[in-house]
Amino acid sequence: MAYSDKVLDHYENPRNVGSLDKNASNVGTGMVGAPACGDVMKLQIQVNDAGIIEDAKFKTYGCGSAIASSSLVTEWLKGKTLDQAAEIKNSAIAEELALPPVKIHCSVLAEDAIKAAVADLKSKQVGSKEAA
């Protein structure tokens, strides 16, 4: 169980831990994984009027690599558009954190969490446009 320095840093000092208002119209929430599998990630993004992600928060139940993967993507997400966010690939996360093969699934989960949060936000925006 040799973790890279970057994983240890994110694990010891996780960035952007917390929750945003999941009912707000400019907040998208992605919850992926399952307790039985040993990891659950909740990732939330908040966009401004220009469609740029201005805040990102996470909570993760999982191993050090899962915590680090989700902590890292909250840093990456800020300042991106939704389309840019959806382009973040698990391979980039795995490379940045030097994840060993048995931990690649943590980066996959983080990518899935981003996609789920973006999809949630987009569905809200479509909904609000239809309402308007």
């Binding site: 994984g33 399952a34 909570k59 915590i67």
Partner: peptide, 24 residues
């Protein structure tokens, strides 16, 4: 537990056994 979404849900009174998890 501060980091755990499950702890947050438990504290909010969510019955975790009834949640539909997106298994991967």
């Amino acid at each position: 537990r501060e980091l755990s979404p499950l702890w947050e849900m438990f504290k909010d009174g969510v019955d975790l056994s009834k949640v539909q998890w997106a298994a991967h």
